[in-house]
Simulated scan of single mutants.
Amino acid sequence: MLKKLILIALTGLIITSCSSSLDTTNLTAEERLAYSIKLYENEDYQEAAKEFEALLLQFPGSAVSDDAQYYLGMTRFKRGEYIIAAYEFSKLIKGMPTSEFVPQSQFMLAECYYQLSPDYSLDQKYTKKAIEEFQVFIDFFPLDSKVAEAEKKIDELNDKLARKEYDTAVIYEKMEYTKAALEYYENVMEIYHDTKYAPLAHYNKINLLVSKNRNQEALDAANSFLKKYPNDSNYSSVEKIKTSLESKLSVRNKNES
């Protein structure tokens, strides 16, 4: 807190000069940080990044190194340089583990990958990385005010992964690759069980099994669906499928006996 108050006071003293005419070479670490933060607040991100980098080179291990490292990451983030920003935040987390900026840096590290997460149809490595880093944030800083936001974004990202898996299953089903389709539907049901795609995958699985005359498997899947999703929009449809399957299986069992 004291460090922040000193920086605020220094900012007022330093920024009386025009940024273009201010010679930063003779400033103390605290003074240079105050000047750099002012550039950042004025959205002069290119110059701010140069100043933060210069500060870290000129005053390695100073009392304000973690401030400079954090704001350097934020500057890169504001410029849309998410890969570089992630590196800068990670550098602070690993190299300055006792810094007050670690929780914020962990959240922003996850946020970088969140911003890099592409459309669901594309490769999802950044999506998975974002989920991983948001979860680390939640695990290590459970009382932080941003935990709710992190949880919400994890849900959003999981929905994206579930949709990709679900759409892959649908494609395989249309191509009549039954085994692959069923495997992908199962993945959605098990891995992404708390997304909206889980009951859809379960419903599709039931219908696919029925279409292949795998009636006992379909009946088992229908019973499972009715237990798991009593409020789902497809509930009544699955009830009818169950009744039909029970009738067919009853007739078959009588014929076999």
Rank of each mutant, 00 (worst) to 15 (best):
K4V: 13
A9S: 09
A9P: 00
L13W: 12
S19A: 15
S21Q: 05
L22R: 06
Y35M: 05
S36G: 10
E53C: 03
E53F: 05
A54R: 07
L56M: 15
A63C: 08
Q69P: 02
Y70R: 04
Y70E: 00
L72G: 01
G73N: 07
F77G: 00
G80L: 06
E81T: 03
A85I: 10
E88Y: 14
S90F: 13
G95L: 11
Q104I: 04
S105D: 07
M108H: 10
A110L: 08
Y113A: 02
L116G: 00
Y120H: 09
L122S: 08
D123W: 07
T127S: 06
A130N: 01
F140Q: 15
A148I: 07
E149I: 11
E151R: 03
A162F: 12
Y172W: 04
E173S: 13
E173T: 08
K179M: 08
Y184Q: 12
D194N: 08
D194R: 08
D194W: 04
A198G: 08
N204Q: 10
N207W: 11
V210G: 03
N215Y: 15
E217K: 10
N223P: 05
S224E: 15
L226G: 01
Y229D: 06
S233E: 10
S237R: 09
S244K: 09
S247T: 12
N253P: 00
N255F: 14
E256K: 15
